[in-house]
Design a protein around this nucleic acid. Structure first.
Lengths: 338, 338
DNA sequence: TTGAAAGCGCTAACAA
DNA sequence: TTGTTAGCGCTTTCAA
């Protein structure tokens, strides 16, 4: 392993450790000194021990990021975008995926490793212990995509407004029976989606009974769920589908029922990607604005680090409806009834 | 931030720091001692400083993973799988994505942070400095998916055999003109794919001129490339396509040319996902075995950590051809000629 | 079983 | 501009 220390370099260069440290940190030294130390460092393959440095300076240059799932390309994109922005500030992401770890455990690990900042997507909105421990961290923190006490800085996605506009778009096309499939309505994203969905109906004073909110639990097979829906006595004429798995299931189900898209069934997906945009027909999508999200998170984090500590703020980044080919007016009623 | 130290705990509990340390590390202490220390720790919200610990023990419990692109779901899946396995050994992944960072820079950072091990996908196979610095790390190291000096442990994907079997499958179906689109034939994965592709032709003593290797540079628009190919005088009857972007482009191009899949054009994709499997028709795919890959990497890494240092080995994990609906026999020749 | 003290590699304050 | 040294929070001898 990388064995040589600042002491070794000092001895090799025939100077004191203090001088080596000065060279390392770009402080004032004579050209001769700089040169002597530099050659000694390369000769010894010296790499400064950032642990020791961190102990003295009380800063690790690491930001802990607790993310629901790294394998989700959306979060992958956010990670990349964040990483690039934080790198410019000399910060490195310490990543933990909620797959196989829980929030409190990860938080403890981040605290032990003395991260300088935290970007956290809590896996529970209510666990008082988690909230307490997050407060106890007492450093720059940004809470992502979850409803959380206002004492934290937060970034949220505009699910509610996004779903409202997506739904309104379908209603404007003439759809009346619309189904929203969404996981975990007991968590903030699901609740918000459902709320925006219903708001669109209410705004037009339409019957909320036609607004079909179908909770999609993780265990369920999306294909079967959609099948059941499409084969019910009064099937929906449009579907709003979060995530690739559910969308894929819905497409299979539509095929099984021999329903053409969009003429017999309209579709809106939540979350954009290559697949969705190049599908035939291309899928109309509610897109997460990854770059804006990364910008906002970075902003919120570094403003805390720089001690610009005003009051915590919660910023909502709007989702964007990308119109493509998967929606049209519903089949006319007389076709419907038999 | 988390302020309290082992000293504070010692004072609070009225014992020595050594004793607190012993409790922390589960060494022999009296029940009274354990209890006193435990209550002091919770009262102070104490979280041990792993930096200080690492300095003493010369081990950080961190493994540096340099991955081509976190936003690629394939790597996301590997990250999850690896994380779960390493967690069981008390190790944490320190992740860096090649998007926006280069290998040497990341390696230096990992070395400064004194990672206990390294999983590295070199961004160059030949840079002698990178190789030297990787050697200088001189700790447990696994090189991923790249041809590299045999002095390193390595995991590779069986691209060559995989492509050979995929190609042979198409040849067996009766295809003769087959195009392989692959990025970066100057890098190992691309070279291997091309080699396996050609081997399949050679094994059947077929004309290699019908084996169309089309390098796909990052700048190119896959859709245009495929279009050009399909509109050439002697178009291929089957396509092998790595990655979602290229596959998506090819599907659009096929649609433009009004070629039905698979009856008029057969397709094999490299890399499996929800989209590919639920597409209509479902796409026959060469799949990376994520779990096996993660198992192998973990194995190779921890065997080095445990000092079971035999000779470095390079393990090749076979890719798996998943047969679905996107391939049939090519249109008969007389249909072809006018 | 417990306490005292040295030391991991570095930075920063103080002296020269 | 340079050298000397204390000390960051922990683990780990060595004594008691």
């Amino acid at each position: 392993m990388s064995r040589s220390t600042i002491k070794d370099v000092a001895r090799e260069a025939g100077v004191s450790v203090g001088s080596v440290s000065r060279v390392l940190n770009g402080l004032a030294v004579s050209p001769r000194m700089r040169h002597a130390v530099d050659t000694a460092m390369t000769r010894l393959d010296y790499e400064p021990n950032s642990l020791a440095r961190s102990m003295r300076t009380n800063s690790t240059g690491a930001v802990g990021y607790f993310v629901p799932d790294v394998a989700n390309p959306l979060y992958g994109a956010i990670i990349n975008a964040l990483d690039q922005r934080l790198k410019a500030r000399g910060l490195m992401l310490l990543l933990a995926s909620a797959r196989g770890r829980n929030g409190r455990e990860v938080l403890a690990e981040f605290r032990r490793r003395r991260v300088d900042g935290l970007i956290f997507t809590p896996d529970s909105e209510t666990d008082p212990e988690l909230i307490r421990e997050l407060k106890a961290f007492n450093g720059p923190t940004v809470i992502q995509t979850v409803e959380f006490p206002d004492s934290f800085y937060g970034v949220r996605i505009g699910y509610r407004a996004g779903l409202r506009s997506a739904t309104d778009y379908l209603l404007g096309l003439g759809h009346r029976r619309i189904a929203l499939l969404t996981p975990l309505t007991e968590l903030w994203p699901g609740r918000e989606r459902a709320a925006g969905f219903r708001e669109a109906f209410e705004a037009r004073q339409l019957d909320l009974n036609d607004a079909l909110v179908c909770p999609q639990d993780l265990g369920l097979d999306p294909e079967l769920e959609v099948l059941r829906l499409l084969q019910s006595p009064q099937p929906p004429t449009a579907l709003i589908l979060p995530g690739t798995r559910i969308l894929a299931g819905a497409l299979r189900a539509a095929r099984t029922c021999k329903l053409a898209i969009p003429s017999q069934l309209s579709l809106i997906s939540i979350g954009d990607n290559d697949w969705v945009s190049s599908h035939d027909p291309a899928i109309t999508t509610l897109r997460w604005p990854v770059e804006t999200l990364a910008d906002t998170i970075t902003e919120l984090l570094v403003s805390q680090m720089d001690g610009v500590r005003n009051q915590p703020v919660q910023i909502t980044v709007p989702a964007e409806l990308v119109l493509r080919e998967s929606c049209t007016s519903p089949p006319s009623p007389h076709q419907d009834s038999h």
